[in-house]
Design a protein around this nucleic acid. Structure first.
Lengths: 330, 330
DNA sequence: CTGTTAGCGCGTTCAA
DNA sequence: TTGAACGCGCTAACAG
């Protein structure tokens, strides 16, 4: 804002050319211009460090060359990994990525207006009020792809992850070891397939469900909530955790109490983040196909940007259960 | 792009008003208009779900209402925390944050053009080639604040962190326990105050320095490099680690080898991320003042946006050494 | 109280 | 091979 940026008009007047000619020479290598003219233009542009104003260009072309990635919270390690993975996808295509946070910890809603006016949006792990995006997308029609646990299959492009089957397997695995007091560790009000599968398997086994709800999703919040819970109710024999961060926090609580994993309490996490390899007791977990999910999301988004009226694109990916020492595998 | 977005012209024609009037009513609650007119405008805007085109607005006003945060790599947990902390700062001021990645793991340079044309930029942990930003900033003059370990004090606004003094203290602390084979664990080619302080303290103590260079910054890279190193050279009695991720990776390597922390190898990390509270042996570390750093960066940036010609704003913050069990504190 | 006009910086027709 | 003019959607200054 200080020194006025050189713009295409400055170049044109200095060169004795018209604005339009300069623009075409700069943007279209095929444009029919005298080599000498072309050379002069390029030289002056370089000398003056001319950089086209991206906003004006976006206004004129209707494209920004950027994609927005909306995510809830970078403090959850898994989210940061997904963001990074998606960046890898689109940078190869020459697009820029903006990461936007839509809920700094708690209930901040989606931004009403997206100042970036990205050419497309990918959201990950959208909460219920995330569906405001749908409404927005309906009037503005920004290409949008949802990823993660999909709650609503209607009228959108998405790359979903099916937590149901693998969650059942996880809980069944914990029960198979003979443990009967198997709990679910999850944020309060979180009601997804992980919880559903857990409740069903417990019911089928004629066991009372034990849902330990945490007051927040951060490790410290989980740690606090779980410590209080155990102080009040004693510890379960096994825990199926909502994500790996919760499982990591749980390990800390258990170790602090002198409890052994898996002997006293077995643990299974979810997400498959790298961090769990650094725990003393390797953590069993549900591994999500992050790279595949991001690759598909990007493919869908590209298609939607090119063909706004293409039919809905949807896929459901299956995570895999990785059994390690924390759930009693030798 | 599908359905044409309603724009301010649509509103104006439907209302029988001029574009300018609609604009003023929408943006300026104080503008002198008949209450009835105002009501009609607001009603139609709501009904049609009118959303101003942010790009056109930005072009007209010269402001975007957004700030870009450039960071190297979200896979390093500390970076994700800083991004999150900075977001907290600016959202309070009503600004939007874009997180941009400038080096997906390795040497990708800064984006030449910033498509977001943010009103300001904050970078964190800029590498040497990050100084291209300076050049860019010199011709375009986007308000810019650097944070983290500052290499070059010239002609910029920055919130620096002084690693030198605290690093000396850390190394001296390791030596004070009688350990003599004290190593530095750092990425290769990383040459900052941590390394400098380490080398000086070792020299002053008449000890041979032992720099263990890792081939990359990720936990897995550190893990691999360190394992190979120890296989070849045996293990040192203590390690001063470049950051907490490196320390966490080191713990894993040591545990796998059956070595005890701190009895066989003492460890001190750097950054003070939350993750280290979840290791079996609490990790000694250098705690960086993340919140203070972000708050100051935002204050400096605001000032620079308001007064482009304000004098340089600079401060150097002091981290603190948090001693825990990993370095032999009882 | 409201309408008109002139840009913001660029790409992109159409002519010449 | 080049120039002139228009439009993207909006804000702002000046009329009336």
């Amino acid at each position: 804002m200080l020194k006025k940026n050189v713009n295409i008009n400055d170049l044109a007047t200095r060169l004795g050319l018209s604005k339009g000619s300069v623009s075409r020479i700069l943007n279209d290598p095929q444009a029919p211009f005298a080599p000498e003219t072309r050379r002069r233009v390029m030289a002056l542009a370089a000398e003056l460090e001319y950089r086209p104003n991206a906003i004006a260009r976006a206004l004129a072309t209707g494209q920004t060359g950027s994609v927005a990635f909306w995510i809830r919270d970078l403090a959850v390690a898994y989210n940061a990994h997904v963001a990074q993975a998606f960046e890898t996808q689109i940078e190869a295509a020459g697009y820029h990525l903006f990461i936007r946070l839509y809920g700094g910890g708690e209930g901040k809603p989606f931004p009403q207006m997206t100042p970036e006016n990205a050419d497309g949006i990918v959201t990950h792990g959208a909460p219920p009020h995330g569906w405001t995006v749908m409404a927005q997308s309906d009037s503005r029609r920004v290409p949008l792809v949802l990823t993660g646990a999909i709650l609503d299959p209607e009228a959108l492009d998405w790359v979903g992850v099916d937590f149901y089957g693998v969650s059942r397997t996880a809980v069944e695995h914990l029960l198979a070891s003979g443990r009967r007091r198997v709990a679910l560790l999850t944020p309060s009000h979180q009601c997804d397939d992980r919880r559903l599968a857990y409740l069903e398997v417990m019911a089928e086994a004629d066991l009372a469900p034990e849902v330990i709800e945490t007051d927040g999703e951060s490790r410290s919040a989980v740690r606090r909530s779980l410590a209080e819970y155990i102080a009040a109710h004693g510890h379960p024999e096994a825990m199926f955790c909502h994500n790996d961060d919760a499982a990591i926090a749980a390990s800390r609580v258990l170790v602090d109490l002198g409890l052994r994993i898996p002997d006293d309490v077995a643990l299974i996490g979810c997400d498959g983040i790298e961090d769990i390899e650094y725990l003393t007791t390797p953590l069993s977990t549900i591994v999500l196909p992050i790279d595949e999910m991001c690759a598909l999301a990007w493919r869908y988004l590209k298609r939607r940007m090119q063909e706004p009226d293409a039919p809905p694109q949807r896929i459901t990916l299956q995570p895999t259960l990785a059994l390690r020492a924390s759930s009693g595998v030798s």
